[in-house]
């Protein structure tokens, strides 16, 4: 099958457009999260998403309403992680662990109440971007605009807080508010990304393009742009390869990302030796 033929399918067009939008969000936010050692927040929030999906499935919500219904739950959980770390005087990773475990436990409990794991729940666990509908693509586009505008508006504050939080505070930046904005934007992105790679693999989409870009980047802005470029390329290649070779899409995207990371790592090692 050639590229023209592949692109002639409506579901492929939607998958490539939706996947690219979500890849840009994950890759851009990923740079901030990785550098702030918050990479696993994506993992924690995805587990909360699992619990929220199970709840939505219990009420037999249509997939279009599903995304809208779980957004507030995941947003609240993201703020919960921050508050827990702040108020309970525990480190961020422990707070992520607590919220993450709570999300999975709730999900399993609700799935059990609904009569066990079904095909719908599995499709959210492992993602199925090829089934993205026009209405879901529209939601993705709206959320893309919201998240990317948020990053653009707070770019310098996010950069300063990521570089050094104490120095950022002495520049008059409200780092507490910036941290909240970052996790809220991440929560929105996680909800979107669940469709592409599935709940189980969301953190890979947040981490891999960012760490790949960080291998070779010479500056913060170039790291952000490179990460977005790598994210889009790997998602497009992953979707195409999975379609042609009849492989699971989410897993293929993650493996393509990992291979890209290995190449960047090797290139960096070679450049350093020269």
């Amino acid at each position: 099958m050639n590229i023209t033929e592949m692109l002639s399918f409506g579901f492929m067009q939607r998958a490539l457009v939706g996947g690219s939008l979500i890849a840009i969000l994950c890759s851009v936010l990923g740079v901030f999260l990785v550098l702030r050692r918050l990479s696993l927040i994506g993992d924690g929030l995805s587990h909360v998403t699992f619990g929220s999906v199970a709840l939505a499935l219990l009420f037999r919500l249509h997939s279009f309403y599903m995304t809208l219904a779980i957004i507030p739950l995941v947003l609240a959980s993201s703020l919960g992680i921050l508050k827990l770390a702040e108020r309970a005087r525990i480190y961020g990773d422990a707070a992520i662990g607590i919220v993450s475990a709570l999300g999975v436990a709730t999900g399993v409990m609700l799935a059990s109440m609904a009569g066990g794991f079904n095909i719908d729940l599995f499709s959210y666990l492992f993602g199925n971007i090829l089934s993205i509908s026009s209405s879901e693509l529209a939601i993705a586009a709206v959320l893309f605009v919201i998240v990317i505008s948020g990053v653009a508006i707070f770019y310098n504050d996010l950069f300063a807080s990521t570089f050094d939080e104490e120095l950022a505070k002495t520049s008059g930046i409200d780092t507490g508010r910036i941290n909240a904005i970052l996790v809220l934007l991440t929560a929105l992105t996680v909800v979107l990304a669940m469709k592409v790679v599935g709940i189980m693999l969301i953190s890979a989409l947040l981490i891999l393009p960012a760490v790949t870009a960080l291998q070779l980047s010479k500056g913060f802005r170039t790291a952000i742009i490179s990460s977005a470029f790598i994210g889009v390329c790997t998602v497009v290649v992953g979707i195409s390869v999975s379609f042609v070779m009849n492989l699971p899409t989410g897993a293929t995207i993650v493996l393509v990302n990992f291979v890209t990371f290995l190449c960047a790592f090797a290139a960096r090692t070679l450049l350093r030796r020269r």
């Binding site: 550098l35 504050d157 950069f159 300063a160 570089f163 050094d164 008059g172 010479k218 500056g219």
Partner: peptide
């Protein structure tokens, strides 16, 4: 020193000094 300095942080000297202008 920086609170949690990461030697792999991808910021150039120019970008770091510019951050001072945010205040």
């Amino acid at each position: 020193g920086l609170q949690f300095f990461n030697p792999h942080f991808p910021a150039t000297v120019d970008e770091v000094i510019r951050l001072g202008r945010l205040s």
